[in-house]
Amino acid sequence: MSRRAATLVVASLFILLLGLAAALMPVPYVALRPGPTSDTLGKLGKAPLIQITGAKTYPTEGHLNFVTVAYQGGPGNRIDLLTALRGWLDPDVSVVPEETIFPKNVSTKKVEQENTQEMTNSQESATAAAMHELHLPTTVSVLVDSVQKGLPADGRLRPGDQITAIDGTKIKDIAGVTATVGARKPGQTVKFTVKRDGKETEIPVTTVASPEKTGKAVVGVILREKYQFPVTVKISVGDVGGPSAGLMFSLGIYDKLTPQDITGGKFIAGTGTITPEGQVGPIGGIQQKMVAARNAGATIFLTPTQNCADAVAAKPKGLRLVRVDTMDGALQALTALRTGQGAIPACPAK
């Protein structure tokens, strides 16, 4: 072999090794793929996914599946360039910058904890939305979740305090607290009536100017609402996190508590956050969630209006998109699908 040929062989091998090394180099991206999907009317393991006690429940047919997105990568477990390239070429996979899922200066553990808390909150909101739709009485309590260090409430109010009134006016929800305190001028004193350790006490707190909103009065508390329902609802989803299953949880609870089978035996999947009043909000990963639903056998997909444009662009064959803004609207659409009568909102909105 001539010296020139040997040089070319060595150079080619060197370039090949550099290419392989580059392909295996970790990159700060996350690959999003279709994740598991579960029927809210079915079981998780041996137990019903939704268990209701304290009221009569009814047998159901069909499916009301919530869907998830699985991710690969993240800090400490980054995907390599080759995996990212394969994901970019796969229409069912989205490759996104790492900070989209894991914000900078936030640990992976913290992100997972937040996702778990969002799932817990979504289950409570879903139960409240179902009770609202069924016209069943629900009691709401406003609790102090945390106190911001260095602000007036620090050392005055405590996590777990139940706020029952402000300046003698009964409080029904967080909006009432925010509106009442916000109507004061910075420097004015607000008298909180709180229930602590089973006893009610009045605690004066002087407001200060909000560091974020000019002229707005604050005291420095983070609040949360606690609901008391006329029935006990337990939702088991394993290690799934996030708020996007809220709509499907609320529909599953409603279906179990009503004699009418709202699916009509159809395989329905969907997604969307839910508020206690039944408002449906947008979610992430709509492309992967639709693929997961269709792969599981769904033919109808309940889609938040704000996700419609992306959903239409990536809709799998054989999946019908039904646009939803509220739980009540979703129920009306399901009735129309079941009976063949009435309008069925479609994506995109007309």
Rank of each mutant, 00 (worst) to 15 (best):
A269H: 04
A269R: 00
A269Y: 00
G270T: 07
G270P: 03
G270A: 10
G270N: 09
T271S: 12
T271R: 02
T271I: 04
T271C: 08
G272V: 02
G272H: 05
T273Y: 01
T273M: 06
I274L: 11
I274N: 00
I274V: 15
I274Y: 01
T275C: 05
T275M: 03
T275Q: 03
T275E: 09
P276I: 11
P276M: 08
P276D: 06
P276H: 10
E277G: 05
E277S: 14
E277I: 09
E277N: 06
G278F: 05
Q279A: 10
V280N: 06
V280Y: 05
V280S: 02
V280L: 06
G281L: 11
G281P: 13
P282G: 07
I283H: 09
I283W: 03
G284C: 11
G284W: 08
G284Q: 07
G285F: 10
G285T: 11
G285V: 12
G285R: 09
I286N: 07
I286G: 07
I286C: 06
Q287V: 14
Q287G: 00
Q287T: 14
Q287I: 14
Q288H: 11
Q288S: 08
K289C: 12
K289N: 11
K289Q: 14
K289M: 13
K289S: 11
K289T: 11
M290W: 06
M290V: 07
M290C: 07
M290R: 05
V291N: 10
V291W: 05
V291L: 12
V291P: 00
V291G: 00
A292Q: 02
A292D: 11
A292Y: 03
A293R: 04
A293Q: 07
R294Q: 15
N295A: 15
N295T: 15
N295R: 15
N295Y: 08
A296L: 12
A296M: 11
A296I: 01
A296C: 03
G297A: 12
G297F: 06
A298F: 09
A298N: 09
A298V: 13
T299R: 14
T299H: 14
T299F: 02
I300H: 12
I300V: 15
I300P: 00
F301E: 03
F301D: 01
F301V: 03
F301W: 02
L302Y: 06
T303I: 04
T303Q: 04
T303Y: 08
T303P: 01
T303D: 10
T305W: 06
T305M: 13
T305H: 13
T305V: 14
T305D: 14
T305G: 08
T305A: 15
Q306E: 15
Q306V: 02
Q306F: 12
N307K: 00
N307Y: 03
N307D: 15
N307V: 08
N307E: 08
N307P: 08
C308P: 05
C308F: 03
A309L: 06
A309Y: 04
D310F: 02
D310L: 01
D310G: 01
D310C: 02
A311R: 01
A311H: 07
A311I: 05
V312T: 13
V312M: 02
A313Y: 03
A313Q: 11
A313V: 01
A313F: 01
